[in-house]
Design a protein around this nucleic acid. Sequence first.
DNA 1: TAATAAACGAGACGGTACGTCAAGTCTTCCA
DNA 2: TGGAAGACTTGACGTACCGTCTCGTTTATTA
Lengths: 202, 202, 202, 202
Amino acid sequence: MGSSSSPPDPSRRRESSRVAILDATLALCQEEGYASLSIEGIAARAGVGKQTIYRWWPSKGAVLLEALDRAASEAAAFPDTGDLVADMRVTLGDIAGFQADPGLGPPLAALIAEAQQDPSIAPMMLETFFGPRRAPILERLRSAQRRGEIDPELAVEPLLEVMLGALFHRLLLRSGPLDGDYVAYVVEVLFGGRAAARRTAG
Amino acid sequence: MGSSSSPPDPSRRRESSRVAILDATLALCQEEGYASLSIEGIAARAGVGKQTIYRWWPSKGAVLLEALDRAASEAAAFPDTGDLVADMRVTLGDIAGFQADPGLGPPLAALIAEAQQDPSIAPMMLETFFGPRRAPILERLRSAQRRGEIDPELAVEPLLEVMLGALFHRLLLRSGPLDGDYVAYVVEVLFGGRAAARRTAG
Amino acid sequence: MGSSSSPPDPSRRRESSRVAILDATLALCQEEGYASLSIEGIAARAGVGKQTIYRWWPSKGAVLLEALDRAASEAAAFPDTGDLVADMRVTLGDIAGFQADPGLGPPLAALIAEAQQDPSIAPMMLETFFGPRRAPILERLRSAQRRGEIDPELAVEPLLEVMLGALFHRLLLRSGPLDGDYVAYVVEVLFGGRAAARRTAG
Amino acid sequence: MGSSSSPPDPSRRRESSRVAILDATLALCQEEGYASLSIEGIAARAGVGKQTIYRWWPSKGAVLLEALDRAASEAAAFPDTGDLVADMRVTLGDIAGFQADPGLGPPLAALIAEAQQDPSIAPMMLETFFGPRRAPILERLRSAQRRGEIDPELAVEPLLEVMLGALFHRLLLRSGPLDGDYVAYVVEVLFGGRAAARRTAG
DNA sequence: TAATAAACGAGACGGTACGTCAAGTCTTCCA
DNA sequence: TGGAAGACTTGACGTACCGTCTCGTTTATTA
C-alpha cells in the first residue's frame, strides 16, 4: 500500500506563484470581504491552478494569515522612554491604528472569526502572527516591573490579554472607534489606576 | 404595478415552527459546530421547509442569535453588596461561566465571528443580546461612582468594554482558561489598581 | 374515520371566480407561454385563492382545456356543397387557421403536450374538445360515402385522424406553415388520389 | 473584459459519465414518466454531479433527445422491392412499432411535448433525430416517382409529413392502437387512393 | 545537452449548500 | 360556509465552490 502521495518538495516551489496567491488573497479580501473569498476566486485572480493553493496551504484561513502577516511586516514602535503610560499609549496606538486600517482590520477580524470554525487557525495565529508582535510589549512590561512601575508579582501575559482584548472588543463588535481617545482611556484605566476602587478612602 | 412581494404577516406565524427552528439551530451548532451549520440542515432537523426560515430570518446568523438569546434567558447575578471588587468578580464570573460553557461559548464566538462577515449582525447583537445583559452592570458601575468607589468623571461604557474584551480575548483566541482566576485577575487589575504605574511612589 | 373532505357543492360555486380563472389562464398562456403558467400565477391574476382552483379543477391542464374550449366556441364552417374536395379544403382550412392563430395554436399544442404527462387529459380532450368539433366532419365524410364520393367500405374515423394528424405534424413539429397550400396538398393527396400508386396504369 | 465563462473542452469529457447520464435518463423516463424526470434525479441515478449535466446539455429535453437517439440506433428497414405500397407498409410499420414500444413511444411523445415549451428542442429534434431517419424514406418516395409509381410533380416532404402525422395522432392523442391495421389503412388511403373522390365516376 | 521528474495552469469531476420558485395542503378570517 | 389570503412542507431549480483528480506544459535539476 504505502501512502499514495508524497509531501511536496519546497525547493521546487515557484515563488512567483506564492506571491501572486498572497497578493490576490489580500486584495480580494479587502475588495469583496472575507465572506466571498474563495479558493477558486484566489486561483483565478492569481492566475494559478487551485491545486497549487491546496498543495501549499491547509486552508483558506492559512493563506489569509500568511498574506496578512506579509502585509503587516513593518514593525510597530516599541519605545522605552521610562514613562510606561506614555510608551503604552504609543504602542497600543500603533496596534489600534493597524486594526482601524480599513485594509488590515477587517482581514484580521475575519481571521479571528475563521479561527472559531477552524481549530487549526487559532494556534497558528498566536504563534505566527501575534507571538512575535507581542514579545517586545511583554518585554517592555517586564522592564517596567524591574523598575517598580508595576507590581513585580503581577503576571504580564494576562495583562497584555486585557489590553488587547479591549481593542478586540471594538474591532469585532464595532462598539466604538479604535482611536487615540480609546487607547488613552484603556491605558489610563489599566496603568493609571483611574478605575481603582478607593477602598481605603474612608 | 406595486412591489412584487409583501412582508409576511406575523400574526399568521406558526409558533411551533419557530421554536423547532431555534431548537434545531442551537442543537446542531453544539453538536457539529457553526461551520457545518446550514439552512438545509436546520430545516431538515426542525421538520420545516427552508422557505419558512428564509421568510422570518434574514440570515443564518440571525437565527442563531435568536436561538442563543432564547437559551441564555436565565438572568445572571448582579449583586450590589457595596464591595465593587467582590460584586464584579461575581458578575464577570457569571459571564465567564457562560462563555466557558461548551454549549454556549462556541455559539457565541461563532456569532461574533459571523458578525465580521455579515454587517447586519453586529448591531443586532449589540441591541438584542448584549444590550439588555449589560445594562445592569453599567448601573452597578454608576452606583459605584455615586458612592465614590470609582472616579465619577470616568465614562463607564468603555470600562465595560475593557472588562468584556478581556474575556473575549480568551473566548476567541483560546489564549487561556476562562476561569475564576482570570476573572479575579481582570477585576484586580482594573478595580484594584494592581497594574497602576506607581508614578508618585518616590 | 371517513373521508376528511366532501366534494364541493356546485350550486354554491361563484361564477365570477370561474370566469376570472379561465380568462386569466388563457391570457397568461398567450402572454408568457404554457411553460411559465402556474396555479399561483393564475390565482394572483384572477384575484382568487389557490384553493378555489384546486377545488374545481383536477389539474392545470384541465383549467386550460376549459379555457380553450370557452375561447374556441365560435363554430367552424362545415359546408356540404357536394364537392368533397372543396368542402374539405374549407373545413380543414378553418381548423388550420385555428391552429395557426398565435393565441390559440400554442395553447392547443401545450394541451396535447400536457396530455403526454397527465394521462387524464387525453380522454378529457378527446371528449370535451375534439369530439363535438369532429362530429360534423365525420358526418360530412359519411354523406360523401352515401353519395359514392368515397369508398363506402372505408372507416371514416381513421381518415379523420390522418387528416388532422397532418395538421398536428406542422403544429407540433413546426415543420412548415399551416397555410392554405398545405391544406390543399393534404386534401389533394387524400381525396384527389394524387399519391396513389398507379398500379393499373399500364 | 471578455466573456466570463468559456465553453467546456470536449476532449476532457468523461465518456463514462455521459453514458451513465443517458442510461439513467432513459431508464427514469421509462419507469416514472417524463413528468417526474428531473436533473437532480438523473444526476443521483447516474452517480454524477448536477453540474456535469448542465455543463454538456442545455436542457432536460436535450438529454432525453440524445438518450432516445442512442437507444433507437438500430436501423429501421427501408426496403425497395418495387412495390411502393408493400414497402411503405414495412417502413411505416417499423416506425409504428417504435412508437408503440412502451419504452420508446412515451419518451418520444414527451420530447414532442417538451418541444412545445422549449423552442430549442423542435429544430434539434428535426435535425438530430428525425432528419437522418427520414432521409431514406424520402429517397424511396423519389425512386417511386422516377418509376412513375407516384406523380412526379408531387413534393414528397409534405407527403412524409402526412404519413407520419397520422402516426403522431395515435401516439399523442391515444385515439387508437398503433398497429399493422392502422399502418395498412394509412398506406392504402395515401398510396392506394382508397379515399379518392370519384369525381369522374358518373 | 538531453532526459526526467516535479510543480504548474487548467479545468472536469462527484458533491453540498445556496437562495428561489411553485406545488399542493392547511388554517384563519371575511362576507 | 364558500372563498380570499397566505403560511406551511416538500422538492426541484440552476449556481457557486468545495476538494480531488487527471491532463498537457513549463522548469530545473540530474544523467
